[in-house]
Design a protein around this nucleic acid. Sequence first.
DNA 1: TATGAATGAGGGTTCATTCAT
DNA 2: GATGAATGAACCCTCATTCAT
Lengths: 197, 197, 197, 197
Amino acid sequence: MKREKDPEKENRLLESAFKLFTEKGIKETSIQGIVDESNVAKGTFYLYFKDKYELRDILIEKKSKKLFNDAVCELRKNYIKSLDDQIIFIVNYIINVLSKNTVLLKFISKNLSWGVFSQTVTKLYQKSESEDDGFYQLFLKGVHEQNIKLKNPEVTLYMIIELVSSTCFNSIMYNEPLPIEEYKPFLYDTIRKLMHE
Amino acid sequence: MKREKDPEKENRLLESAFKLFTEKGIKETSIQGIVDESNVAKGTFYLYFKDKYELRDILIEKKSKKLFNDAVCELRKNYIKSLDDQIIFIVNYIINVLSKNTVLLKFISKNLSWGVFSQTVTKLYQKSESEDDGFYQLFLKGVHEQNIKLKNPEVTLYMIIELVSSTCFNSIMYNEPLPIEEYKPFLYDTIRKLMHE
Amino acid sequence: MKREKDPEKENRLLESAFKLFTEKGIKETSIQGIVDESNVAKGTFYLYFKDKYELRDILIEKKSKKLFNDAVCELRKNYIKSLDDQIIFIVNYIINVLSKNTVLLKFISKNLSWGVFSQTVTKLYQKSESEDDGFYQLFLKGVHEQNIKLKNPEVTLYMIIELVSSTCFNSIMYNEPLPIEEYKPFLYDTIRKLMHE
Amino acid sequence: MKREKDPEKENRLLESAFKLFTEKGIKETSIQGIVDESNVAKGTFYLYFKDKYELRDILIEKKSKKLFNDAVCELRKNYIKSLDDQIIFIVNYIINVLSKNTVLLKFISKNLSWGVFSQTVTKLYQKSESEDDGFYQLFLKGVHEQNIKLKNPEVTLYMIIELVSSTCFNSIMYNEPLPIEEYKPFLYDTIRKLMHE
DNA sequence: TATGAATGAGGGTTCATTCAT
DNA sequence: GATGAATGAACCCTCATTCAT
């Protein structure tokens, strides 16, 4: 009887926007540009999204959810005991993904600022249903169970996330001040230090 | 007969733009807005700058130059010996300035991203004329003279700068995850650790 | 097999449109709005009407037919002899209906302009099937039978209709220059004068 | 030094809008249409007017001011004593102008509704500086000085204005129910009657 | 018959940039 | 050098209308 909203079209809009946000940033990306890239009429955009900011938020949630889910999922398969190693495993996993997928890296750096990104992720995993499957929870629980002495575990996690975020972008994108693979030892060393005051 | 470019006018344009960029961001600031604020005609803008992006870049250079110059200048007056203490002195100085001058902080966060900022600063002080008066030089020279053992001093400096940058904004602006004064001990502790692998 | 046009649906469309035209005027009313209000799909609209202007015209005819029919019908029940009194009875009846039903009044004023309205009404009753049951006929026949001396009865009727129309809207809606009840004596007085040159 | 706003351009915008408002009404007239007709860039419109409604209001004031000024001015030249004759002189003057200038007549009928028009005019002449040169004042003063017995002179004036307005449009434009010249006797007769209850 | 997704023309508005004065 | 009127491209958004289902 009636035509259904086309998920193919929605996806094309999302991916085109993703691409353009990545290349130029949100402010510089016009809806006209997005629909052109998607081979979709202008009016159609408004059938799926209120404006480009709604689209961005959907994109952020979608992309970061996947990234962190994959990381934690992979961790599960490896039965790593030590919290240090767990954290470094996750960081390493994410760095590897972003190294191969620099479009995603650019999207995150251009549109989220790592600040917003980590905020989103944190929020995402704070409200996780079962009590022990979030990144945030995983960290706090690990600190407690493995008897790690930290004055303020939350601040430590904050510093780790921010250090990784801000530091890795240049390294991956421009090999500055070092290529990422050479930088990793310094980074993981520092993470271990931060976790043992 | 020919009048020279009026430095008074140029300065008014710079400061008005600084104010508006800070309040609304670059994209949202119109040239009309800048010239209105400066009591200058629209056409005049183009006698001084190619467009608002050039103006922004000049502003970045000017503001960060001043910030770092002031910090190093103040350091000189205090005859601090240890490199750890020197670095922390400078970091502390800048944090204090930005805490009091959140307009400047916002400008940096809205228009630069800390990444661009530190890049600028680094560049600024790499090419510093006299060989020993830049922040960068100061650090490398200090490491050498005080016999500090670092595998790669440049990377250490990079990590320090990025950690400070990314970490302090939320703390100053939103007291998250801690107010800046409470966060400082954690931060300075970590800096010392980074300098003694 | 083929289903007929659903009069229920048509009516819902008419009444929804009536409501919206009244509230916002024609130009500001969208077809989307009409079908939403009617719980009908957008495409369905075009099965019943060419566009919203056709719908409006149907609405005009329908609403004004009813108004005048009711007035004349009520007159019949009251066995009033004198033509003056008959005309004033009808005018008074319509004023009373519109005073209580300002939605209808607004619809007429927003979408018809009183000019179109009276034109419609006049047309409506000129072509009335049986020769003596229209307002127009009623007036002309009355003038003849009751031996009223008028140079041009048609012009007199025209002046009465226009005077009433243009004059009563402000009075009912805004009490300007007088509330309708206070204005009535002036109006009916003038009507009587017009009918006795 | 600087270019001046071009009154020629403003006038072209006003007159083009006047023409289009007349032909299609305000709602149906687009700014695009106005600037096309004026051979002016779209942006230029906003240099002169906030939107088309501001333009309309300026047009109303301008056109009606002129019309009434001319009428009263002409009246002055003719030393007519009796108020009846004065009022009829002005009405006649305006009818004659509008008969020759049906574009103006259409503009008034399409965009103002005679209601708004008379309101404007009334306002215009109520606030007239010198105490006796407005139409409104002229009427009230005349009633008083010439000892004309009216229960409520304001209402009488209202009825006259509305009767003339609503009645003459059809007559001028469509010769319905009579050509204007043939209608005048009926109209002026009625005006005299209204002024002598 | 009925649906509502899709379309794209068209409207209002802003603004960087040019250029006559 | 300085001005600000003029331009027109580009943006966002709405909506009548079509048409596959």
